[in-house]
Write a protein that binds this DNA or RNA. Sequence first.
DNA 1: TTCTTATTTTATAATTATTATAAATTTAGA
DNA 2: TCTAAATTTATAATAATTATAAAATAAGAA
Lengths: 130, 130
Amino acid sequence: MKLNLTTQRKAVLEILQQAHDHPTAADVMDRLRAQGHLFAYGTVYNSLRYLTEAGLVKELKLGETASRYDARTEDHHHIVCVRCGRVDEVTMELPAEWLARAAQETHYQVHHASVVLEGVCEECSVQNDK
Amino acid sequence: MKLNLTTQRKAVLEILQQAHDHPTAADVMDRLRAQGHLFAYGTVYNSLRYLTEAGLVKELKLGETASRYDARTEDHHHIVCVRCGRVDEVTMELPAEWLARAAQETHYQVHHASVVLEGVCEECSVQNDK
DNA sequence: TTCTTATTTTATAATTATTATAAATTTAGA
DNA sequence: TCTAAATTTATAATAATTATAAAATAAGAA
């Protein structure tokens, strides 16, 4: 499958590559608009799906209602601040030994692991340090 | 806050306690109907939220479109079969040392961890063992 | 018990995130 | 340049869930 990066797909990808947070489709839409790009909503979703299937971005389902998107495609985990909703990366991998034991316990072939941590980010715990 | 278990809330709770899988709201609705209970959809959602807030059940957001519910309230993780969608429990805890390192890396106070594994369940890998 | 108030259920409408559809536009290759 | 394929657009549809307001039920005070 050859890659077909149209103007709108490229613009969406660039938004994600420049983003330090993990924007939702609606966030991407807003940022495109801020750059003067007025694409159809469907096109943004379509682009996000295309880029995801092409392996250029990852779709994150962190238990919120909306998916988030991430241009960092190396496998990694996430941590969500329960106060402000901010999402950060966790680059550490789960111990292979732990995964092996999980496979043993469940009798599954384990292909993939995703960890979502919850906690309070540094900013929030400084602000509200009661 | 005192617990107010109405007929409908009790019925929903019992469905979840008897379930070996991890039913969605729609599944719960179906099983209630199969028992002759015809509650309003909103009531089922309302009951699920009530029971969740009361700590009697847990809401699982595993990256599918619909939430699943679990009457097992001890903290545990889940594994999803990518072939058949079945969900099983993983009772092993993450190593405290791993969580501590994650806290250090992210500068978060980590409150909670949830692991979702993906793989192929025993049945599916036997069936389709190409 | 009866009256009053609070809680809950019900039916329905509204909302949110997302996907589907069909026409119009753009792109690419013959 | 012509034709076919792919893509964008605008809009409608869908799925899961929440909100609303009226009706029903439960609980407490008199």
